[in-house]
């Protein structure tokens, strides 16, 4: 079958095409970028190995696993708390690399790993009106005093389960939904952003390195 080139398709390939859309505002209120370079995996601590897992992740990635809905990141690798003893690990630019295999090796016996690279549509959102757009679907409070850089939440937008994280103070938000629901999420997002005008930025456009998560984890057990 050598004649068949294996063409990967991103979840929003036909929908999130670069350009300027919605109201013709002076400046787009929202910038949208589909991130297609993230290798993803669910990491679930094996029973009784929680402390060893913390140590192993620290040793392998220099990251303290967050115990709460926060993301901790270093050098393009991040671990987001998505449940009790459960994380979503992400690595930038490593979709076609062996990030998940190496994760399995490094955490063998300490965590159950399931690859999710293909399971999620990933959007990065920023712009002056990003919070106003998100308020049309995200039921949780995204006010800076309540949801800050490094915070993660799993919630629902327009009946679609999503994971949202604030990546930096600009602010940039990362919004993720299951791949099969990408078109429905897009329908909500594009309609919600239209009144402010929005621009779809090509994936991996200049400046994305600064999108990296810059803070380390904030524990909910801060007492």
């Amino acid at each position: 079958m050598a004649d068949l080139a294996l063409q990967a398709r991103t979840p929003l390939q036909d929908l999130a095409r670069p350009g300027r859309f919605g109201a013709a505002t002076a400046k787009p209120g929202l910038l949208i970028e589909e991130r297609t370079d993230l290798a993803l995996a669910t990491v679930m601590a094996r029973r009784g190995r929680e402390h060893d897992l913390n140590r192993a992740v620290a040793a392998a990635y220099g990251i303290d696993l967050p115990h709460g809905p926060h993301v901790a990141a270093k050098d393009g690798v991040s671990f987001a708390g998505i449940g009790v003893q459960r994380w979503l690990a992400a690595a930038e630019g490593l979709v076609e690399a062996d990030f998940v295999d190496r994760l399995r090796q490094r955490l063998a016996g300490l965590a159950s790993i399931a690859e999710q690279t293909d399971g999620w549509a990933v959007l990065r959102l920023r712009g002056d009106r990003v919070r106003d757009v998100l308020a049309k679907g995200i039921p949780i409070d995204l006010h800076p005093s309540r949801f800050a850089t490094g915070d993660v939440a799993l919630t629902v937008v327009a009946h679609i389960g999503v994971q949202i994280a604030q990546l930096d103070d600009r602010p940039t938000f990362q919004l993720m939904a299951f791949r099969s629901l990408a078109a429905s999420l897009w329908s909500w997002l594009s309609k919600s952003a239209a009144e402010f005008g929005y621009e779809i930025v090509p994936s991996g456009s200049p400046g994305r390195r600064t999108d990296r998560i810059t803070t380390t984890k904030r524990s909910i057990n801060s007492d």
Partner: peptide, 11 residues
């Protein structure tokens, strides 16, 4: 206790 305050529609 993990996620914080949410509406009951999430449960």
């Amino acid at each position: 206790p993990y996620c914080g305050e949410r509406g009951n529609e999430e449960f």
